[in-house]
Design a protein around this nucleic acid. Structure first.
Lengths: 260, 260
DNA sequence: TTTCATTGGTACAAGGCTATACCTTTGGCT
DNA sequence: AGCCAAAGGTATAGCCTTGTACCAATGAAA
């Protein structure tokens, strides 16, 4: 028999790893990660975690949201219902009604890292994956951005985001920081980069929301943001990449520190 | 009314872009890109396009494939049926049977780029996105790889892949090249990077299969592969990144050239 | 005060996907 | 020659998801 790429001949020793792992592993992954309902819940949560729709603001109307997510309104409503029951949304009827974001109640506002550890454990192996993937995306995006960026409109958007982070208070900082990074991901010119970054950043924010944001960290971060934007607008890809990497290393170290 | 993140007030001038695009665009994308059946077809095609299961070889048994893709066997079978009807698979019953990969018949073996243009048009805007995303992933993976890689087993895998590409003939080259790049993506340490790369590379291969592979290109590519692996194993992230970028630029230029 | 556009709430039928169980074919091995 | 394990082929009941149509509430504007 000539062809037998994946043939598990009569019996393969179950214990010994095939040395080189499964060559098909990269492609043979779940086509869907859960049912539509679950994924829809995560998508809506993503909007909130990224700070794209903030406390007190409302989501787009059900019909619009359902169409943009390519999901039936029924399924979307189930997702919204769950988030309402979880206290993350307040749903009001009638014109000028809608789904309004409510503050996530923090059971333990302390920075002892108990909640962080719980969520990190939930991620398991995917924590390291998330941090690495994030680095690849953001460093790559920063570099592309520095090479591409020329349009005046794009420059303005970056400057606006930077100004917003600089002006932001402690409560608002994570949100503005996310927007700045997301802007860079989008200005990379690749929709895929932006979309993947949104997903990954959502996970990161979920963790970051468990630890306190200190003014010194914030100031340090702001200096890096300034340099990053300068490098991008100045067309210095190498510098942009270096600054971005260092910037991310700070966050990663912070997380790892609290988890250690 | 205070909260109105996405509120399209009574009537927004439909023509003028909101200057800064839709801030929710990155997160509000389709939850699913087609039905399970379609995505399953693409996944199986991916295995073939990546050369992970080559001509004459067979796919894993239906039951195993269905479980790994997290899809019901019924749906998987529908996908296989389509590929069988399309002449890409030959399905044989009985023990030692299975779904065997058949050679894709090339309607026009010429390198005139007609077929390439047709497929590129099908991709539309996503072509540029694909090339950019690929660059971000691969350059990032190469760098991570050079930083991380230490284990003897990993070193051996890279060397094996390199040797295989060097020994490969024209017919086999694309397959071996893909495996080498996929190995680098996997050795980056991030499952996400590897998975996304597999998807993107599958798209790229679909295009590359439309244009002829010339010995000069092959030789040039091989020299770069050698240098790339050397940089990775030597722990030189900057060099690894630079070589990878140049390597990819070659492919991109080739494609753009045929499309121009 | 009345109107009415907008937005959430509900109902129902059709199609897609899954889980499970069982049948059929094939070819190496005894 | 017959056995039988592994692989594809088939059938059915049930849940998930969708599309469509219509109802109900709300509050700004006339």
């Amino acid at each position: 028999m000539s062809g037998t790429a994946a043939g598990t001949r009569p019996a393969r020793p179950a214990g010994a790893a095939p040395a080189g792992a499964d060559p098909l592993a990269a492609a043979l992954r779940p086509v869907r990660s859960g049912n539509t309902f679950e994924e829809t819940v995560q998508r809506v949560l993503q909007l909130i975690r990224l700070g794209l729709v903030r406390e007190g603001e409302r989501l787009p109307p059900e019909r619009e949201l359902a169409e943009r997510l390519q999901v039936s309104r029924v399924t979307l409503r189930e997702a919204l219902k769950v988030l309402q029951d979880a206290g993350r949304l307040e749903i009001r009827r009638g014109r000028y009604g809608g789904a309004f974001v409510r503050q996530a109640e923090q059971d333990a506002p302390s920075g002892d890292g108990a909640e962080l550890r719980r969520r990190a454990e939930l991620l398991g192996d995917r924590l390291e994956d998330t941090l690495l993937f994030r680095e690849v995306l953001e460093v790559g995006a920063a570099e592309l951005c520095a090479v591409r960026d020329t349009g005046g409109e794009e420059e303005r958007r970056l400057r606006d985001c930077l100004a917003a982070t600089a002006a932001a208070g402690l409560a608002d900082y994570r949100s503005q920081d996310t927007r700045l990074h997301l802007a860079i991901a989008e200005l990379s010119g690749s929709v895929s980069v932006a979309a993947q970054y949104a997903a990954v950043r959502s996970t990161v924010n979920e963790l970051l929301d468990c630890i306190p944001l200190l003014p010194p960290n914030l100031e340090h971060s702001e200096r890096q943001h300034t340099e990053l934007v300068a490098a991008i607008l100045g067309g210095e890809p190498d510098r942009a990449r270096a600054v971005m990497r260092e910037h991310l290393a700070g966050t990663a170290a912070l997380l790892r520190g609290f988890l250690a």
